[in-house]
């Protein structure tokens, strides 16, 4: 979703940059973090088919139950960037919401991850692996000259979350 003609924005940017005093310009160039939250509910089984039931239970505990179980996952997507001098935004939140819906919520909400959401037919859907997959899906979509994907935090429960980011 592009709200403004890019050529118009870059023209306006050039004018604003030229007219803005240096000290004010530097204040506006500081990097900021922006976080958008989304929820999805999904079921999964954490078990490696190459291992025995006993081995899987030793590694994954109750999560290895072959019948599956579910979580209300909460994902927090953090972008880092500089506010655009014209729009005042690091990234269009409506566009970010739409990207998260398309890449994460629509394909994963109310799904059995192991059976319905590749690559979890081949990769064990641990919280770590789901966070990595969300990172992989979003990193190709969240692209802007002034913003980049910084972190994906995935809560499996209110008491356990994983951070997947450039720095870790």
């Amino acid at each position: 979703m592009i709200l403004l003609d890019p050529a118009m924005i870059s023209d306006a940017q050039a004018k604003m940059t030229a007219s803005r005093p240096r000290s004010v310009a530097s204040k506006h160039c500081r990097s900021m973090l922006l976080t958008r939250k989304a929820e999805f509910s999904a079921s999964h089984v954490c078990a490696n088919p190459a291992l025995s039931a006993e081995e899987n239970a030793a590694i994954y505990g109750a999560n290895a139950n072959a019948h599956g179980h579910g979580h209300n996952y909460v994902v927090e997507v953090t972008l880092e960037g500089e506010p655009d001098p014209v729009t005042g935004m690091v990234f269009d939140l409506r566009e970010l919401k739409e990207i998260i819906n398309q890449e994460v919520v629509d394909p994963m909400d109310h799904r059995f991850l192991n059976r319905e959401v590749p690559p979890f037919d081949k990769i064990v859907p641990t919280t770590e692996n789901i966070a990595q997959e969300i990172w992989r899906r979003l990193s190709g979509r969240v692209t802007a000259p002034n913003a980049r994907l910084k972190n994906v935090r995935l809560y499996e429960t209110a008491d356990l979350y994983v951070d997947c980011g450039n720095s870790n």
Binding site: D159, L160, V162, C164
Partner: peptide, 8 residues
């Protein structure tokens, strides 16, 4: 990656 676990 990092994992955070909460205890009370």
């Amino acid at each position: 990656m990092q994992l955070t676990s909460r205890y009370r």
